[in-house]
Simulated assay, not measured.
Amino acid sequence: MVLGKRLRHLRERAHVSFEEAARAVEVTPLTVRRMEKAEVGLKIPYVKELLRAYGVPSPEIDDFLDLTREANQPGWWHQFRDVVPEWFSAYVSLESEATVIRAYEPHYVPGLLQTEDYARAVLRAGFPNDTDEEIERRIALRVKRQRLLSKADAPAIWAILEETALRRPVGGAEVMRRQIDHLIEALAMPKVRLQIMRFAAGPHPGAFGPLHYFRFGFTELPDVVYTEGVTGAVYVDQPGEVVTCLEVLDRMAVQAEPVGETIPILAELRKEL
């Protein structure tokens, strides 16, 4: 996505039209558009000829091609492609590159904060036809995603969790106790913030389903919002729609219990198990 936007900037700076760029590499103007929108892979020969057509100096071309080769390498999650739906691989990619992740979860503890036993129970319910081996592969992916939290440049995580998610008996009482303990431990991390939306808070603007927001350290990358359903997901990056989703998260953050109340509430819920 970053390189596609840089290609667009270079083309516009050189005052080259889509049609002229397409003739330089003998493709259709639509292909050039799709390269700039990161809807297709960036082929090295095409990129090289486009940069020449845009008047980019040779040393800068070499640097750009090195970045292109790096971008074309499969992400670490590619090794889990047998258990990762195509629509979810983009989520893992966004999660891996984000500097800020905000989330609203109405049903379950966010994946980055789940214990293995809790994840196993959730995945077993979500993929009832999977073999034990496939479930364990999904858990392995989730555990590897969680390494993100211990990195030196870990993203800031701010999640709002429905009280329902903490009262739902996922895996039984002992699994839930360990899960709540894990959340309390996670809150000791400087970049993890968790709020709980109590039943008593009543209706709120995000009650339609899970909502995840990503912000990145690249100026070329827009903020992205992810929502999901039974058969797939929607990724939103149009500024107006992203701002609307961010406003929803902000309003919920005001309506949910303050961050300082999260650990006492978790301790209270644990005693009830």
Score class of each variant (00 low, 15 high):
residue 1 M to V: 02
residue 8 R to A: 12
residue 10 L to A: 15
residue 12 E to Q: 15
residue 13 R to Y: 05
residue 14 A to F: 08
residue 17 S to E: 04
residue 19 E to M: 05
residue 19 E to Y: 08
residue 26 E to T: 10
residue 29 P to M: 05
residue 29 P to T: 08
residue 38 A to Q: 07
residue 40 V to F: 05
residue 40 V to A: 06
residue 43 K to L: 05
residue 44 I to V: 15
residue 45 P to Y: 03
residue 46 Y to R: 10
residue 52 R to Q: 10
residue 53 A to S: 14
residue 55 G to S: 07
residue 56 V to C: 01
residue 66 D to P: 00
residue 70 E to I: 10
residue 72 N to M: 15
residue 73 Q to Y: 01
residue 75 G to N: 00
residue 75 G to H: 02
residue 79 Q to C: 06
residue 87 W to R: 12
residue 88 F to M: 10
residue 90 A to Q: 14
residue 92 V to T: 11
residue 93 S to E: 13
residue 94 L to W: 03
residue 96 S to F: 03
residue 98 A to V: 05
residue 101 I to F: 12
residue 107 H to K: 09
residue 108 Y to W: 13
residue 113 L to I: 11
residue 125 A to N: 15
residue 126 G to K: 12
residue 126 G to R: 13
residue 134 E to P: 01
residue 141 L to M: 06
residue 146 Q to G: 03
residue 151 K to G: 00
residue 152 A to H: 03
residue 154 A to M: 06
residue 155 P to L: 04
residue 158 W to Y: 12
residue 159 A to M: 03
residue 160 I to N: 03
residue 168 R to Y: 04
residue 171 G to C: 07
residue 178 R to T: 01
residue 181 D to T: 03
residue 183 L to C: 04
residue 184 I to G: 04
residue 187 L to K: 11
residue 189 M to V: 05
residue 190 P to Y: 02
residue 190 P to R: 10
residue 197 M to S: 14
residue 201 A to P: 12
residue 210 P to R: 09
residue 211 L to D: 13
residue 213 Y to K: 03
residue 214 F to A: 11
residue 216 F to Q: 12
residue 221 L to S: 12
residue 229 G to E: 08
residue 230 V to Y: 07
residue 242 V to D: 12
residue 249 L to R: 02
residue 249 L to Q: 05
residue 253 A to P: 00
residue 254 V to E: 14
residue 257 E to W: 08
